[in-house]
Design a binder for these strands. Structure first.
Lengths: 339, 339
DNA sequence: CTGAAAGCGCTTACAG
DNA sequence: CTGAAAGCGCTTACAG
């Protein structure tokens, strides 16, 4: 099958290339008859405008890139997929083209954000999964293309942000645990270089007097090991609850507690509400992030930024979900809390 | 920041545009000195070749598209993400460009595969998630661009395929259940329109004398409902084991069994080994698909098809994993469902 | 080893 | 309402 171009349609209809282009771009100033003729001919020939040519010749490009960092690190965490699906769905409703780009620290060192955008004629971008230590994170601080960063706290007025209010959510969860009677709450954080980790820790610290914070790299395995090590050096009986900065780490802690036979004594809460959270035993009390809304606003805010130059910093509602691993009310009556 | 083009590099170096192009494409026939000059100037200017222009002007294009169908239907199933990550990683090692495209039945009706490939100058494509009822499935039967289909059985000599040997795996699992003493095995399938469902059912049927097959649309919920309904009309005591065509359905059945208080009586096996499989209680006996290898071969075979015109139909090794939900040997003393 | 020029498939002022 | 022509940023024969 040979490639069919705008010329073929022009030839077939006896019109000029310009006219064909005009009907395909809905330029208004065309007779109904030519529209019909062109549409028909294009259909018969199976013509589709070539996007590379379009990009190259057009002044006003409309291409939005979604950049996801470290997409395949953790089995069981489908968050990148939810964002991908959400962004695609929301972009489908607009006339922007979609470009996906998966990166990692190695690729970041080889090609800068600016280079990528230049190479692909990117109009604006949505970016997620960056850690503070990533080259792209630094680059974003002086970046000047419309950008919305998910779960990131960029000190650049030109970069919009969308995320859960991690600090508030963590604060609230800590308070609820406290109110439920868990007085001595330990916080198991991920890494110091993740924006969300810092925000969650801040919320926890606000809510307690004597903060106890440890790190387990957002890893189930490391969380499990941490708990076992901790048990050797300290008395877990002094701890009433462990609030982990991610569900995966919460699951790791529960696994350790099963080994240590501490399961019934200490409450555990997580963060994210990944799919696993509701399937494990005990099911996880956690903070649910609304990835659907996050993707939706990422797209909306980015387009708003591109078209109206308005930059937004948005928090998307979260939900605190009480399950078996930690009680959130004194009176054992299960209630859902919304924010 | 203004866009820097090949012209700027030419100007800065005093060379012609052609020469710049040559060093960027490693054309050999260039003096070491110009290479150095160009490389330096490009770096200083922050030049990156524009890929749209490159595509448009170049004869030999190298763009591989990954098309994923219905990416965001089932929460908890990260398979599309694993494929995406795998394909990206493997493509990164080559000099092919990567294009991602998420589709669904609605979009398939709006834009044909051929149109998409024409629009984007696609050299070859990897496609996954299609059901037999999908427009693209039909289109693939007469498609003539290099293509590798994952988990699909296309009756087109020009389309390569990569998948688990679903029939053999299902056959083997059924046999292992039988050998372990589960004589009366029921098969709970997904949909009749999924290639993998047909293959798995075939394997099951080969292994049993009196096939009993039901469908639950690959849905956890429907599987749960099915089991409850089945219990009303039939005697579950006659069934020794249920082999579900997906882990999610297996989990649904187990949920129903918990409600029906049948948990200890009937073994359950799944297929896929999704993350949940090892976390639920009882953990799931299942067939593990090697998505890493599947993605790897999809890329390899596609490139082989593009460059050497060799079409492959490949089965990737699977692994049968025994966990708590079903015993797979008679001798091993292991009670069902022990923690 | 290097340059001038045509061309890839479109869009978009500019005329008419 | 329509066409001729320049141009987007590259690549690639063709000369030299």
């Amino acid at each position: 099958m040979k490639k069919v171009t705008i010329k073929d349609v022009a030839l077939k209809t006896g019109l000029s290339v310009s006219s064909i282009s005009r009907v395909f771009n809905n330029y208004g100033d065309i007779s109904a008859e030519t529209i019909k003729k062109v549409t028909l001919a294009a259909k018969e020939l199976g013509y589709t405008p070539n996007s590379a040519a379009k990009q190259l010749s057009s002044k006003k490009k409309k291409i939005i890139a979604l950049i996801l960092n470290e997409i395949n690190v953790t089995r069981g965490v489908a968050m990148p997929l939810e964002i991908l699906g959400g962004v695609v769905d929301n972009l489908d409703k607009t006339d922007y083209e979609f470009v996906f780009y998966a990166t990692n620290s190695k690729k970041q060192n080889q090609k800068s954000l600016r280079q990528f955008c230049n190479e692909r004629d990117i109009t604006g971008l949505i970016i997620q999964g960056l850690r503070i230590s990533d080259p792209y994170y630094q680059e974003l601080e002086t970046f000047d293309l419309p950008t919305v960063a998910i779960d990131l706290d960029i000190k650049n007025e030109k970069v919009g942000t969308v995320s859960t209010d991690n600090t508030k959510a963590a604060f609230e969860m800590t308070q609820l645990l406290d109110k439920a009677g868990y007085k001595n709450i330990l916080f198991l954080n991920g890494t110091k270089t993740a924006t969300v980790a810092q925000a969650r820790e801040a919320g926890y610290r606000e809510a307690v007097d004597n903060a106890q914070v440890y790190y387990a790299n957002f890893s189930e395995n490391e969380a499990c090991k941490w708990a076992i090590e901790y048990a050797k050096m300290n008395d877990f009986n002094k701890i009433d609850a462990i609030f982990a900065a991610s569900d995966l780490m919460a699951i790791g802690v529960i696994k350790a507690f099963r080994i240590l036979d501490l399961e019934k004594n200490i409450a555990v809460a997580g963060f994210d509400d990944i799919t696993l959270a509701s399937y494990v035993t005990p099911s996880l009390t956690t903070v649910r992030q609304d990835m659907g809304k996050i993707s939706e606003y990422a797209v909306k805010d980015l387009i708003c930024q591109i078209e109206k130059d308005e930059i937004k910093h948005r928090f998307v509602p979260y939900q605190i979900i009480e399950r078996e691993s930690a009680r959130l009310t004194t009176d054992k009556v299960k209630t859902k809390f919304e924010a």
